[in-house]
Amino acid sequence: MANSFTGAVAVVQFPGVNCEYETAAAARAVGVSAAIFRWNEDPAALDGCLGIVLPGGFSYQDRIRAGVVAAKDRVMDAVSALARAGTPVLGICNGAQVLVEAGLIPGIHWEKVDLALAPNVMADREGYYCNWIYLRREPTNCLWTKLYGDGEVVPVPVAHAEGRFTTEDAGVLEEMKRGGQVALRYCDASGAVVPSFPVNPNGSVENIAGVCNREGNVLALMPHPERAAWLRQVPEDLGDRWARRRRAAAGDQAALEGEGPGRRFFAALGGAKGGSR
């Protein structure tokens, strides 16, 4: 039964996550192998893995607070140790909530909880919101966004009820910005960072959509790049170059099976080596 993840991407399946399969598929689409790691398997199997992805969903039913129960799980001892040693770690949506609650993000102080992913604040309601938004790649040394250009606009979907990055510690926010840890911001189709809904879909401070650690190998990302890893997944009616490409590919299935805007998050692993950068 025991899997080995040497040279492969491990997608961690906490009870209640629900994006593990498409996340593994998005990793495979860039030519790396990927497998599911059930939360209570022996964490030693993760040694030597190419990268770790904490996928989206509702780990432990969001009991107490999204991500916090998984953050205390035994497997996170191993994830934390591997992250410290430089293994690439990506938390998507619920996975981002786990990384924040585990103190791996922003990671300015080791395993200290310096941020929250708080309930969404929208124009006229609260709660769950699912839609396509645009991300702007910020100047950063983040491993996961290294294949995107500075200022590049990337459409991807969000789907969450608690995605508002916030902190009570102004110093932390300053240090994150200074250290190039604000990897991605919500923006409009032209790349303008407009602070109001719906460009900022959850009221996140300074439109922050993704935060990496100082070393750049760990990223907490609220939107779902695995749902934008194929051109087929891009809605025709969006207003940017990806949607134009999508429309131009109508009738060409091979083109639609090609790269989507979110794929380069995973492609970044192509150049990464297991255990270090």
Partner: peptide, 28 residues
Amino acid sequence: FRRYDSEVQGRAVLRPGEADAAVIAPLP
């Protein structure tokens, strides 16, 4: 529609509201 996850599983081609029918690509 915005309260529902229409993207999970990554199979979406046409989502609710985009056309008269929703379309998924079930087989990768």
